[in-house]
């Protein structure tokens, strides 16, 4: 929404707010304007604008040559994206739900992620694979998973997971400009879509000009001295809510670390915070075992377990599929209530 018509137009409001979805689209659009090799493809990304509005308006702006609706074959169109990237384009390919990776994982982890290694570094695959993650709206087992731990586990891909509009735009621009394949995972609950669960933190100020948010750098979403909460994506919003409540009710100050990227992982940010607070809670909407929460705990244990004044706590999805029934789904997700209970136990408040 830049004002460009004339000098008589008033300055934009000091703070321009956008939803996360609109911030992502703005990032893609600005890169498409700057670089003719950037194209967008996937199911329903053109006419429909992406089922979670991640590509809304791009077809009108850039036309069907650069914004392409594909048939329902994830293997085919992700392979198409890889081929285009190898030949020098910068495709942004949308996998509608991350849960659908099951039908196209060979293209992703054996080709997109490995061509650079297989070619001895001679062939680059500068593509973005963006995909919707997460639950909380009764979409059940095959449409509610996060699975970022799965992609972060497999070498060869960068993995970014924004939590707010400003980072969503900056990480999108960084992902498109990066010469490596980047998996860009957006939680449906942070998009600011009126028909999904709306939350206040998914509509926020976004700078209008293009800018990069560095991949591999965590941010301190809230400073605190009593315990560290390491988390990502929608759980950042919940953790911040809990931190505000604990501050008001118990005088306990939680530090909330928003990882923003899982690969590369900003271990230094985690270690610096835990060295300060001596207490660590990891909140992850992915499955608990063999994943992000264990990796964070291991990072501290391998470096200096002596910095911990209490055992590490984890709030994650127990190792079961995400249930359809709202009551059961709520029971497995890392809700504010579960985070609050764990945080209070951690600091004995």
């Amino acid at each position: 929404m830049s004002v460009t018509e004339s000098a008589t137009a008033p300055a934009e409001p000091a703070v321009r707010r956008l939803t996360t979805a609109r911030a992502m689209v703005e990032g893609i659009a600005q890169e498409m304007e700057r670089d003719a090799s950037v194209v967008v493809l996937g199911e329903d990304v053109a006419k429909y604008g992406g089922i979670f509005s991640s590509t809304a308006g791009l077809l009108d702006k850039f036309g069907p040559q650069r914004v392409i609706d594909t048939p329902i074959s994830e293997t085919a169109f992700i392979g198409l994206g890889i081929g285009a990237a190898v030949e020098g384009m910068r495709p942004v390919v949308e996998l509608m739900f991350v849960d659908f990776f099951g039908v196209c994982m060979d293209q992703i982890y054996n080709h997109m992620a490995k061509i650079h290694f297989e070619s001895g570094g001679n062939v680059r695959v500068p593509m973005v694979l963006m995909t919707a993650t997460g639950g909380g709206y009764s979409d059940a087992e095959q449409h509610s998973q996060c699975l970022w731990g799965t992609f972060a586990h497999l070498p060869g891909m960068k993995v970014v997971v924004p939590s707010n509009p400003a980072d969503a735009k900056g990480l999108m621009i960084s992902a498109i400009r990066d010469d490596n394949p980047v998996v860009y995972m957006f939680h449906k609950g942070i998009m600011g879509l009126p028909w999904m669960a709306k939350n206040a933190r998914s509509i926020a100020p976004v700078p209008p000009e293009p800018y990069e948010t560095p991949i591999g750098k965590a941010s301190i979403a809230r400073e605190g001295s009593d315990a560290t909460v390491v988390t990502v994506s929608l759980s950042v919003h919940h953790a911040l809510d809990v931190a505000d409540q604990m501050s008001a009710e118990h005088g306990v100050e939680l530090e909330v670390i928003d990882l923003r990227s899982l690969v590369p992982l900003d271990r230094e940010a985690v270690l610096a915070s835990v060295a300060k607070t001596g207490r660590l809670l990891v909140v992850d909407e992915d499955y608990q075992s063999f994943g992000l929460s264990g990796e964070i705990a291991a990072t501290v244990a391998e470096t200096d377990p002596g910095m911990l004044r209490a055992p590490v706590r984890r709030v994650a999805v127990p190792d079961v599929p995400i249930p359809y029934a709202r009551s059961l789904e709520t029971a497995v997700l890392p809700t504010r209530e579960r985070i609050m209970t764990a945080a209070r136990e951690l600091v004995r408040a």
Binding site: M1, E5, A9, P10, A11, E12, P13, R17, G192, P194
Partner: peptide, 22 residues
Amino acid sequence: LATWFVADGDQVASGQLLGEVM
């Protein structure tokens, strides 16, 4: 009225996105 992207009293330019309805 799902979202206001501007605050009451803000200066706005013609064509600027004000809000989202559903």
